[in-house]
Design a protein around this nucleic acid. Structure first.
Lengths: 336, 336
DNA sequence: TTGAAAGCGCTAACAA
DNA sequence: TTGTTAGCGCTTTCAA
């Protein structure tokens, strides 16, 4: 292994000079700098991560806690994780992948061992067990997702309240007055996942304003479950003409079942999906949708965390503005 | 921050004793051990990762290189990554998430900086740029996937040749004599992704043995692309009665299009998917499928890498035996 | 603009 | 069974 001392010797300078060339924390003459950089390249030197962490008490690692479950939004999770990793690299950080399995203990472990300088938490629940620890620690942390009480926390998320509202607006403007919402699996609501409830809040509030009726049904992403849900919806509200789907795996079953029932999209019913663009464009009908900006969320989380590591960022909730893209699945509602 | 020295003082022993209690590398009297462990708990001590890595030259970190693209098998990737992370934890390792973005340089960086003790590479291509470096390094490495030349490498993968063969066997036994293979997107074949080509090899070889005709068509996962592909297939081989799909996003379009054409599953055509069980069971028809055992692959990769870190494992290719599950999408072929 | 040297917190010989 | 101590490779203060 090549050490800093070896580089120093090879370049004919002291160890500290090499260190300062690397960190740029002190001005170095051009010639010395060149010589050192030359030696670094020739010897293929890489600073030892452990030694560096020990001496500087900074590991240059950001911990990313992903949820253990893979029952929801998996591609979104993956996209966020990858965006986090690549963005982190552009700032000189590596990413440590932690699963939710360890629970709050993971936060303590990272903090105690100084394994990571900061953390990013995904899939935060409304009343997440890890939050008290996060509030106490002085390690910068950013949440992807929004808990019930974000006081003293930094959060990045899509504005799901506005998302819900936009969906209602769009359907309302098209003339729809009875809307059904196909939601995530019941378990998702039972564990009070923030985005699902906030979407619902946004939907309902706006629906009330417009005098639109809303029916919400959580639903597993299987054909059978969806068939049952759909039957119930049309039983209870035969006049339903607008659908909002927030459940990736329910999208295709919904489209397929509506077709089988002879309901044309968008002539008879309109469908809006809340999902990544990829899902919306690859579906059997090109779906009008509000995009889930996974990459952007990952990127912003890292930017925030890096700012905090530099002592710049302040606690704040950054809600990304939802964008509704009109495609082929929404059209005018019933003539009055 | 609580240090080992503080624990030692609190317990009234020397630093090394605490260290040995932690590592178990030396026998300690029960009473001393108890006292030390008590102190550790009381003080909430966690060993400093940097210091430990520096002193022991082991970071207890495994690097996981995931592909940058998210165009393929995303849920599988995520499942593998999570399995890797959780399995690693059971062995006391953490996981560093690297994207393919850095390319081979990442291997050098990890090696040079001693950031990780070992690496696991996902989505290995047949002639992967990183392989020469992996062969040279003395850091244990395990590939998930199989390159063209696995000499001197340790690999874990599903036996895709056998997978292809099993699909043909099943269809052959049911009486099908003309089979079409809906493959991954053309780009996947162009970059010579091992599993796709190996599946094809297995399919074709077994088909030859049985005297079954095979047509292979790479295909994007959109409805339009699939519609075109399907039309071409039935033009060229009107007698096609068996389908093998190896493309998650093509599954639902395929089922839907076949239905629209009035081809009943499994009465008129049989469909076998090569995909995670979750996809097979959630599709509109419960699909006969060969499962992609993502968790198992991740788990085994970690077990292998940990064995190597202990100086136990040897280079070998571990091919998981594919399992075909008969569900509702395959049935008897045309009467002769 | 550069160098010398004192740690950072831990591990693992070496001693007892 | 336990203690003492010399580093691991780097950062950073202090000195020049």
């Amino acid at each position: 292994m090549v050490t800093l001392a070896e580089v120093a010797h090879h370049a004919g300078v002291s160890a500290s000079t090499v260190s300062y060339v690397l960190s740029g924390k002190r001005s170095i003459s051009a010639s010395t700098k060149d010589r050192v950089e030359q030696s670094i390249r020739e010897l293929g030197y890489h600073p030892n991560a452990g030694a560096r962490a020990l001496a500087s008490s900074r590991s240059n690692i950001i911990a990313l806690m992903v949820p253990l479950r893979t029952d929801m939004y998996v591609p979104v999770m993956m996209e966020i994780a990858i965006a986090v990793a690549t963005t982190a690299r552009t700032h000189g950080y590596d990413v440590l992948l932690l699963t939710g399995e360890e629970g709050p203990e993971a936060v303590r472990r990272i903090e105690g061992s100084a394994l990571a300088d900061a953390m990013i938490l995904m899939d935060v629940e409304l009343d997440d067990e890890r939050l008290p620890l996060i509030r106490e620690t002085d390690r910068p942390a950013v949440l992807i997702g929004l808990p019930a009480d974000p006081t003293g926390l930094t959060c990045v998320d899509l504005d799901f309240v506005a998302t819900g509202a936009q969906c209602v607006d769009h359907l309302f403007e098209l003339g729809h007055r009875e809307i059904a919402v196909i939601g995530e699996a019941p378990a998702v609501y039972e564990r009070h996942t923030g985005f699902a409830e906030r979407t619902l809040d946004g939907l309902r509030a706006r629906a009330r304003e417009h005098g639109v009726r809303v029916l919400h049904r959580p639903c597993e992403g299987t054909y059978d479950a969806l068939a049952a849900t759909l039957a119930r919806i049309f039983d209870e509200r035969p006049g339903t003409t607008g659908f909002v789907v927030q459940n990736e795996s329910a999208v295709e079953p919904l489209l397929s079942l509506l077709r089988r029932q002879g309901r044309a999209i968008p002539e008879d019913v309109s469908v809006i999906a809340i999902c990544p663009d990829q899902v919306a464009t690859q579906a059997s009908v090109r779906l009008t949708s509000v995009a889930i900006p996974a990459q952007e969320m990952g990127r912003q989380a890292v930017e925030q965390v890096v700012a905090k590591l530099r002592g710049q960022g302040a606690d704040e909730v950054a809600l990304l503005v939802p964008e509704l893209t009109v495609r082929a699945s929404s059209g005018p509602g019933p003539a009055k």
